[in-house]
Amino acid sequence: MYTTIQKWGNSQAVRLPKAILELAKIQEKDRVELKVENGSIIIRPVKKHKSLKERIAEHNGDYECSEWDTGKPAGKEVW
């Protein structure tokens, strides 16, 4: 998809098509990070902080605590 850089006040602007925003899961008023890498402009969404209320709402109750094997001792952990 192609677009054109246009004047917007004292700046330049690019319109982002709705389809591109939907694919990137970015909505109006979302925060984004702008970077230049190897001469390319990168626009990345800033991860949104979830509130405790949002995290609890997503919990479906299937988590179970368990032990895991971290492997053999590598140093002087065991006496």
Rank of each mutant, 00 (worst) to 15 (best):
D69L: 04
V14N: 09
Q6L: 03
E54D: 08
N10Y: 15
L34N: 04
C65Y: 11
K48E: 10
L52D: 08
L16Y: 05
A19T: 10
I26C: 03
S11N: 06
E54I: 07
A74G: 09
S40G: 10
K76N: 12
Y2H: 00
A57C: 11
V46T: 08
E64F: 06
G71S: 13
G75W: 06
G39R: 12
W8G: 11
D30M: 13
L16R: 02
D62M: 00
I5C: 01
E58L: 08
R55E: 13
I56W: 01
R44D: 01
D30T: 14
E67Q: 10
E77W: 01
R31G: 02
E37M: 12
K18S: 01
G75H: 07
Q27G: 11
D69P: 02
T4D: 10
W79K: 08
I56M: 03
E54F: 04
R31I: 07
L21T: 06
E54P: 04
E54A: 04
E64N: 07
V14K: 08
T3L: 01
I41N: 07
Y63A: 00
A19F: 03
N38F: 07
Q27E: 13
Q12A: 14
Q6H: 07
Q12L: 15
T3H: 01
E67D: 15
S40V: 07
A74I: 08
G71F: 00
A57T: 05
Q12M: 15
Y63E: 05
L52P: 06
N60G: 06
E58I: 04
N60A: 01
A74K: 12
G61Q: 06
H59N: 12
